[in-house]
Design a protein around this nucleic acid. Structure first.
Length: 677
RNA sequence: GCGCUCGUAGCUCAGUUGGAUAGAGCAGCAGAUUUCUAAUCUGCGGGUCGCAGGUUCGAGUCCUGCCGAGCGUACCA
């Protein structure tokens, strides 16, 4: 229960100064003698929420219904008693009781304006307060394998992790990002083996990473070939014949008389046929893979010359781990260019890390981890492996293999110990795809048994990036898509769109140089925003057309909205900074002004919601709402041509705050804006 | 077999500890441009929220069962 409380307190108690928090505070006070105790009052006060429909006001309190039930009184009566006790006169119009006992709240315009003026004066933070009790967060995200190029699978972890890092830091927490790269695994065995047998010194000199990825691909192909030929094909053929006879048996069995049994039998046949079809597909794939290599003369020769390549690669890896001088030297030589390559991708993505402590960093600590867990009776031997058996799990958590090698479980445990010793965090967040949830459940359970009880471990899991066919995003030939080429494609498409639109103008706005800058920001932004705008836990379909669309909830639309607002200041030769200091005031007369103002007021509430459950899409939703309201305002409220000087200045202030809210919000998501596009 | 995630408009997706008449974009239809950037905006049509029960003042949201999809499930990470 205590750990759950720790969870609830997590990152969400951000500011007592936002409107929602202020309302809840006032309700909490008013509820105290109705509810009896402070805890119940706070719980009920949490039922004050933004209204979902403007006709119910700006906020609504839903607490009278549950409280009425608790007290055995009609909810409307309770609502009336509550309104009686509320001290909201400076904040709201008189509360309205509606329906079964909803209390609808409409903010006073002067209160909204006062808040916005304060936000305007706060250049960097737009009035968002820092948390009262900062916590220390370690964020673990991106974590690519360095010996192979980053691919589409790294987008979500990198982009979501970076956005959470930025937001947590912005609201005042201490944040430490640590890129747990894979720099010590089998993939290095592959390139070491590849270098020794197929390496090309001249090619390495020309382009080390290209040469190393060639070696990686070549060795991987050969390993997979022998695996397919020697293990997969026989196994699949065996399984196929088993499944064929089972399906035949089921089909021949007499149909049961009982309807329920009959249905079950039919289902079993259906399942057997589905299994059969799946096995046939797998077999066909494996056969095609083998055939492809045998049809390629150079590959066929390599394959024939290296029949035991799989074991040999593992031996090279083991030699590296054992301290073999030659392999260590090669590792030392290969690692820097690999790191430089991924750094280039991070530079383009505008992502950086405080630390990059990969698997190799923990190599020496691993034996001690196993000894320590065994000494405490947490780990024991089973089938020759060292295992932690956990309640509620059939399979144990393996921390050392039969052959003595360590696993990523071991490294993760060593990493936890290092991070706890070094940084004493309150929370460690792992931004890793959902398929690893069992691993993290076991890892966290083991870490707690190991003594790390008072730290919040969170697996920030996310869904898969899918292609058009609804299957994991791959190239036509089935290879994973390289991240660099993905970014190139998005930027190229963005460039075409930018040029097309700018050329269509009577007077093109942008130089060739500007077009390239805009395309880079729009293209990269599109990929990041599409990722962040989807619910973290669901899969989503990757589509360049959708993410680069100008309508809807996309980076391009948000960036365009920003550019449109900015252009007003250019067009009117208005110095926004000077205007802010001029004593000009916001006045809300038009409904569209008020709707925009209300949204601008709620920026910090949106951040609260994001960090309560680490869901960046709640910020994109908010920003899209701001942009939509700005569009409505822009249609119906002339700014530069306003009726009076006072109205002109008021509207310019709203524009200024809109622009800065969009820019800050996008920056917290790791997305850059442009002044013109 | 067991476990986790999911099923919302023709398509892609939102939906805040359970809140009032379930939203957005695309696609379809109808409009707005001598422009403050139309790369835009406005309006219309479109839903048995997989199915069936249950909990309650109130269920897309929680519980149970079923149907369907994906993922995981002892020595890869």
């Amino acid at each position: 229960m205590r750990s759950l409380c720790g969870l609830c307190a997590s990152a969400s108690d951000i500011t007592v100064m936002n409107t929602l928090a202020e309302l809840r505070q006032r309700f909490s006070t008013a509820l105290l003698d109705l509810a009896g105790d402070a805890a119940t009052a706070a719980e009920l006060a949490a039922l004050v929420l933004p209204s979902q429909d403007p006709k119910f006001g700006d906020y609504q309190a839903n607490c009278a219904m549950p409280l009425g039930k608790r007290l055995g009184k009609p909810p409307r009566e309770v609502a009336a008693a509550l309104v009686e006790r509320l001290d909201l006169a400076d904040l709201c119009e008189p509360p309205q009781i509606a329906g079964p006992g909803f209390i609808n709240l409409t903010l006073r315009d002067d209160w909204i304006v006062a808040r916005l003026q304060a936000a305007l004066a706060d250049v960097d933070r737009l009035g968002v307060q820092r948390v009262a009790a900062p916590r220390t967060f370690v964020l673990d995200y991106s974590s690519p394998n360095v010996a192979k190029p980053m691919h589409v699978g790294h987008i979500r972890s990198t982009v979501i992790g970076d956005a959470l890092y930025r937001m947590l830091r912005f609201v005042g927490h201490k944040t430490i990002s640590d890129n747990h790269i894979g720099d010590w695994g089998t993939q290095f065995g592959m390139i070491i083996y590849g270098w020794k047998h197929f390496g090309d010194e001249a090619a390495f000199a020309r382009g080390p990473v290209a040469e190393l990825s060639r070696l990686y691909r070549l060795v991987n192909t050969l390993v997979e070939y022998h695996e397919a030929k020697n293990e997969q094909l026989p196994a699949l053929r065996l399984r196929l014949s088993d499944q064929e006879s089972r399906a035949a048996q089921l089909e021949l069995a007499p149909t049961p008389a009982d309807p329920a049994d009959k249905k079950r039998a039919a289902k079993r046949i259906q399942e057997a046929l589905a299994d059969l079809a799946k096995t046939r597909d797998e077999l066909a794939d494996a056969e095609a893979k083998v055939a492809r290599i045998e049809a390629d003369e150079p590959l066929r020769k390599h394959a024939a010359a290296h029949p035991n390549i799989g074991a040999a690669v593992l031996a090279e890896t083991a030699a590296l781990h054992a301290g073999d001088a030659e392999n260590r030297a090669l590792w030392q030589r290969f690692l820097p260019p690999c790191l430089a390559e991924i750094d280039e991708t991070y530079r383009r993505l505008d992502v950086s890390f405080d630390h990059t402590l990969g698997e190799s960093f923990y190599e020496e600590a691993l034996p001690q981890v196993v000894r320590d867990l065994a000494a405490r009776g947490l780990a024991r031997e089973s089938h020759g492996a060292q295992c932690v058996f956990l309640e509620g799990h059939d399979a144990p958590f393996l921390i050392q293999k039969q052959d003595g090698a360590f696993l990523y479980a071991t490294t993760d445990l060593a990493t936890i110990r290092y991070r706890m010793d070094q940084w004493r965090p309150d929370a460690i967040l792992y931004v890793v795809d959902h398929r690893q949830s069992l691993h993290f459940t076991q890892l966290f359970a083991t870490a707690r048994l190991w003594g790390y009880e008072h730290v919040e471990f969170q697996h920030i899991s996310f869904g898969t990036v899918l292609g058009d066919d609804g299957k994991p995003f791959k190239t036509r030939s089935g290879a994973s898509v390289g991240l660099a080429s993905l970014l190139d494609e998005a930027v190229d498409r963005a460039h075409a769109i930018v040029c097309q639109n700018d050329d269509a103008r009577p007077e093109p706005l942008l130089s060739a140089e500007e077009r390239r800058t805009v395309a880079e920001r729009v293209g990269i932004g599109a990929i990041k925003y599409a990722d962040l705008a989807h619910n973290r836990t669901s899969d989503y379909k990757f589509s360049y057309d959708k993410m680069l669309a100008m309508q809807g909830n996309t980076a391009a639309y948000m960036q365009y909205s920003y550019a449109r607002v900015s252009s007003i200041f250019d067009k009117g030769s208005v110095d926004a900074a000077a205007l802010r200091l001029s004593g000009a005031e916001i006045t809300l007369t038009h409904p569209a002004e008020r709707a925009l103002a209300l949204a601008l007021l709620q920026f910090s509430e949106a951040l609260d919601r994001v960090l309560a459950d680490y869901r960046p899409n709640l910020l994109t939703d908010y920003l899209y709402d701001v942009a939509s309201r700005y569009a409505a305002f822009f249609e119906s409220c002339p700014v530069l041509r306003a009726d009076t000087q006072q109205q002109r200045e008021s509207r310019l202030l709203l524009c200024d705050l809109t622009a800065r809210t969009l820019r800050l919000g996008l920056n917290l998501l790791g997305i850059a804006v442009v002044d013109r596009m």
